[in-house]
Amino acid sequence: MVSSDTSLDQAQLTTIYQRRWKVEEHHKPLKQNTSLGKSPTKTPNTQANHFFASILAYTKLEILKLQLGMGHFRLKAQLYLTGLKAMSQELARISPKLPRNIS
């Protein structure tokens, strides 16, 4: 741990670090699991919509986390896996209907 405040002792520095870490525990999943940091928006209206959708997704992940006892990253992985399985099943269902020679 590093600080520019040389008047802090080890206990004070550890307390500050622990408080900051609590904030990071919320920022990381918010940015990575709800794509808050990857907003492709340009206008204030679309940026506000993206922000709202990210906060809503984070809230839903928090509810699932409490109900299922799983972390955000594990929940996200399971949601992706479920989506991939559904897509694979749908592709298998419609594949006989697809033309064989697509140019």
Score class of each variant (00 low, 15 high):
Arg19Ile: 07
Ala86Gly: 02
Pro40Met: 09
Phe52Leu: 13
Ile16Arg: 01
Met87Arg: 08
Gly37Val: 00
Thr41Asp: 10
Arg100Met: 14
Asn45Gly: 01
Met70Leu: 15
Ile16Trp: 00
Tyr58Ala: 04
Ser103Glu: 13
Leu91Thr: 10
Tyr17Asp: 11
Arg19Leu: 13
Leu84Trp: 13
Thr46Ala: 13
Ile94Phe: 13
Ser4Thr: 04
Gly71Ala: 08
Phe52Asn: 08
Glu62Gln: 15
His50Asp: 02
Glu90Thr: 06
Gln47Met: 10
Ala77Gly: 06
Ile16Val: 07
Thr46Cys: 02
Leu81Val: 07
Ala77Asp: 06
His50Phe: 01
Leu84Ser: 05
Ser3Ala: 05
Ser7Met: 07
Gln10Ala: 06
Ile16Tyr: 02
Ala53Thr: 06
Gly83Asp: 05
Ser54Asp: 04
Asn49Cys: 04
Thr14Val: 10
Leu81Phe: 14
Ala11Val: 04
Asp5Asn: 12
His50Leu: 00
Arg19His: 13
Lys76Val: 12
Ser95Arg: 12
Leu66Cys: 06
Leu36Met: 10
Ser4Ala: 05
Tyr80Gly: 04
Tyr58Asn: 06
Ser103Gln: 12
Ser39Asn: 14
Leu30Met: 12
Thr46Gln: 11
Lys65Trp: 03
Ala48Val: 05
Arg74Phe: 02
Gly69Leu: 12
Arg20Met: 08
Glu62His: 14
Leu98Glu: 00
Ser35Asp: 15
His26Pro: 00
Ala48Gly: 01
Asp9Val: 01
Ile16Cys: 03
Tyr80Val: 13
Asn33Met: 06
Gly37Thr: 02
Val23Cys: 08
Lys22Asn: 09
Thr59Val: 03
Ile102Thr: 12
Lys28Leu: 05
Leu66Glu: 08
Leu64Asp: 15
Asn49Asp: 04
Asn101Lys: 05
Lys85Val: 10
Met1Arg: 04
Ser39Phe: 01
Arg93Gly: 00
Gly37Asn: 14
Thr14Met: 11
Ser95Asp: 03
Leu8Cys: 06
Ala53Gly: 02
His50Tyr: 02
Ala53Asp: 11
Gln32Met: 05
Thr6Asp: 03
Pro29Gly: 05
Ser88Pro: 04
Ala11Pro: 01
Ser54Val: 01
Leu64His: 07
Ala11Met: 03
Arg19Glu: 15
Gln18Lys: 03
Asn45Ala: 11
Gln78His: 05
Thr15Trp: 09
Pro44Gly: 05
Phe51Tyr: 11
Tyr80Arg: 14
Arg100Ala: 13
Leu64Phe: 07
Asp5His: 06
Ile63Leu: 09
Ala11Lys: 06
Ile102Met: 12
Lys31Met: 10
Met70Asp: 09
Asp5Arg: 11
Leu8Gly: 00
Ser7Val: 05
Pro96Glu: 00
Gln78Asn: 03
Lys60Met: 09
Asp9Ile: 01
Met70Ser: 07
Gly37Trp: 02
Arg93Thr: 04
Gln32Arg: 12
Arg20Gln: 08
Ile94Arg: 12
Leu8Phe: 04
Gln32Trp: 09
Thr46Trp: 01
Ile55Arg: 05
Thr14Ile: 06
